[in-house]
């Protein structure tokens, strides 16, 4: 069962909301302190990518985020309804030097995928016409029962 489900209006300010909520839920679920920072970076990257895509392609549609405590570990999904994600780029730096324009510095959503796949060992991207789901997993310590951890400090 999902511990937390979020539907976020695709506004840049709510990317921070997503980070705070996901970190609080992960800490509560017993994710190792050493992995919380990685989770914060990853959820921020995935949410930022989704919000930027919705701003261009689906302004009135919320971004969906779930945090679940599953047998395989702590599972975070971020689903957007922008164009299907392309392959993870081989040379993100080169792509950024090519793609960033003088007006907007628009981040390339594929660069975000490169960051995510480099950051998180267990990162999967599923995409179809008009949607992409990024799934991120982290192991939970087997001896920590969900809900048995100290009260979240977030």
């Amino acid at each position: 069962m999902a511990l937390v489900e979020l539907t976020l209006a695709p506004l840049p300010a709510h990317v921070r909301t997503a980070r705070l909520v996901a970190v609080a839920a992960a800490r509560r679920a017993g994710l190792d302190d050493g992995l919380l920072d990685e989770l914060r970076l990853a959820i921020g990257e995935a949410a930022s990518r989704a919000v930027a895509l919705h701003a261009r392609h689906a302004q009135d549609v919320p971004v969906r985020i779930t945090v679940a405590d599953e047998p395989g570990g702590l599972t975070v999904t971020v689903t957007d309804q922008g164009p299907a994600a392309g392959p993870v780029p081989d040379d993100p730096a080169g792509d950024m030097l090519e793609a960033v324009d003088d007006e907007g510095d628009v981040a390339d959503p594929d660069v975000a995928l490169a960051v995510l796949s480099g950051l998180v060992d267990d990162c999967a991207v599923d995409a179809g016409p008009g949607w992409t789901t990024v799934t991120l997993r982290w192991p939970l310590a087997a001896d920590v029962a969900p809900g048995a951890t100290s009260v979240a400090r977030a």
Binding site: L41, S48, M96, V100, D105, A107, V111, A114
Partner: peptide, 17 residues
């Protein structure tokens, strides 16, 4: 304390300028 690829994009933009 936090940096995502949007921030990287801005730094790359600055470099190009």
């Amino acid at each position: 304390e936090f940096l995502d690829s949007t921030g990287l994009g801005v730094l790359v933009g600055g470099l190009k300028r």
